[in-house]
Write a protein that binds this DNA or RNA. Structure first.
Length: 493
RNA sequence: CGGGGCGUAGCGCAGUCCGGUAGCGCACCUGGUUUGGGACCAGGGGGUCGCAGGUUCGAAUCCUGUCACCCCGACCA
């Protein structure tokens, strides 16, 4: 089993060339400050587009609309909400000048010192500040609420250490920012969105997640409450895959966003924000992939079925193409994305391996033998099982198979997670178990001090206080003080 | 920012200790034979050895500096 992401971005054997064709590859600009950024190649972007389209549809069904806000945020904006700036200050890229000029020494160009900006601009690490600065002018009356807006954008966080997919300096994401008239409504929206993310993760990514609430110390900077979905990767580490924040009235206060209620009284609005990023692509890879490459869930695979012809000469190729053409039409009519790869410059064996690396869920191979017997060879990527089946009725069979694969991937991942989830009562046991990876359900006294102590001693963090599951009270494994319920600990990315 | 590693062809690497014609595999190009699991044979193209100084008749190799990247920490989605 490929347990680590690096297996998919770097291979030192002779197959490395083919891995360059893999979903994404970090093409790092030479000696430049864009370190830690990634280039998303077309096939990888196609996966991201699938995610976007699906999420977008889900958002819109809840009344959210898309908009776009500026990339650059005036420094003063970022500073308006104290906790927020505190949380992001250490990882911001700053624009200080607006012009270059020719180097007096004749070597290229240099920053023109005369073009210093009066106020520095921050490359957005997230857009709360600029959006709330704008909302101030959009919201006047209770009739303007709720305001439900989402933005698809790139953001930049100058992390000390980057990691492909999981923590790149620049990443693509969506960030939803909603304004509501009441605290209850805003809280309901916050929960609605984390539910939506969970549904997306499980239904489309085939990735089981645990929904929960972050502890105070893990909370988003400026939020009063953060909901999260936590997934388990194949190496037993946790990955925070999506968050939804209840921002209370913090940003409304900071940006003076008020509305006049039905009683003609001014009130501060209630806010929430929620987002998922290209990190989900990392999650997808690390949840399902194996040593043969990617394994994509059918609901997100850019190519769901690939058909590879096997022939000896041009006449043979013709014969197979004629046989396949109606099948391609039939599959497409069912909404299945098919690729018939009759490219003559690659041999069948190469294509088999190549589409396995790309994670295509179903492969059909068709040769002279099949034409004679009225059969086709079918392979499913999740189990690598191969079988020869009747060509007749194959389209219906595939439609069902794709659903099977989707379900199977989810079940497999869930079984693995459940198997790697432990209930532990003593700190000794905890320390031993955490070394082996996985989620640990344990009692905690609810204090940041204990949480910090556990983190310092074991590198494990509280991933979340689950919304569901066992709610029996107990005593903290470290301090022995009362605990309301078990929380989830894990080492994380 | 600490500790370790690394930088040589598009990719993966050898060569560095002990200075003296720039190498290998894959990829690429041409021709032929092939095609049911990553084809084979023959020929060919491609490099200011990360960058800048220094030592030397001569530097990928030695010295100094510097810039990247990777892994482990601190920080974080």
């Amino acid at each position: 089993m490929a347990k680590e992401l690096k297996n998919f971005t770097k291979r030192s054997d002779n197959y490395s060339q083919w891995y360059n064709e893999l979903v994404v590859k970090a093409d790092l600009a030479e000696q430049s400050a864009v370190r830690g950024c990634m280039v998303i190649k077309p096939y990888g972007y196609a996966i991201w587009e699938k995610m976007q389209q699906t999420l977008d549809k889900m958002f819109k069904s809840t009344g959210v609309q898309n908009a776009y806000f500026p990339l650059l945020i005036p420094k003063s904006f970022l500073c308006r909400e104290a906790e927020h700036v505190e949380g992001f200050a250490k990882e911001c890229a700053v624009v200080t000048h607006y012009r270059l000029k020719n180097d007096p020494d004749g070597k290229g160009v240099v920053v023109d010192p005369a073009a210093r900006l009066e106020e520095e601009l921050i490359v957005r690490p997230t857009s709360e500040t600029i959006i709330w600065g704008t909302y101030k002018n959009w919201i006047h009356s209770w009739r303007d609420l709720p305001l439900l807006v989402n933005q698809w954008a790139n953001v930049m966080r100058w992390e000390m250490r980057t990691r492909m997919f999981l923590r790149t300096a620049e990443f693509l994401w969506q960030e939803g920012h909603c304004a509501h008239a009441t605290a209850e409504e805003s809280e309901a929206r916050t929960v609605q969105m984390i539910n939506l993310y969970a549904e997306f993760a499980e239904k489309y990514m085939a990735m089981p997640v645990i929904q929960g609430v972050k502890t105070e110390s893990e909370r988003f900077a400026g939020a009063i409450n953060t909901y999260t979905i936590e997934a388990m990767m194949q190496d037993g580490k946790a990955l925070q895959s999506g968050t939804s924040h209840n921002l209370g009235q913090n940003f409304a206060k900071a940006f003076d966003v008020t509305f006049v209620n039905k009683e003609n009284k001014p009130e501060l609005v209630w806010a929430n924000s929620w987002g998922v990023s290209t990190r989900l692509m990392g999650a997808l890879i690390m949840t399902h992939s194996d040593d043969n490459g990617l394994v994509l869930p059918p609901h997100l695979a850019p190519i769901q079925v690939v058909i590879v012809p096997i022939y000896k000469d041009e006449a043979g190729r013709q014969a197979i193409s004629e046989k396949v053409a109606p099948l391609v039409k039939e599959l497409e009519a069912k909404g299945i994305s098919v690729k018939y790869d009759d490219a003559d410059n690659k041999r069948p064996g190469f294509k088999f391996a190549d589409y396995e690396i790309k994670g295509v869920p179903v492969r059909l191979a068709l040769g002279q033998r099949d034409l004679e017997n009225g059969t086709v060879e079918l392979m499913r990527r999740d189990t690598l099982e191969k079988e020869t089946v009747a060509f007749e009725g194959i389209a219906d069979h595939i439609a069902g198979l794709l659903e099977d694969i989707q379900t199977n991937l989810f079940n497999k991942a869930k079984a693995y997670r459940d198997q790697m989830t432990y209930t532990v009562d003593t700190y000794e046991e905890f320390k031993e178990q955490i070394e082996k990876g996985g989620f640990i359900l344990a009692h905690w006294d609810g204090t940041p001090e204990t949480e910090e102590k556990i983190k310092a001693e074991t590198k494990a963090t509280i991933r979340c206080i689950p919304l569901e599951g066992d709610t029996t009270p107990g005593t903290c494994m470290v301090t022995g003080k009362p605990s309301a319920r078990r929380v989830i600990f894990a080492r994380s990315y």
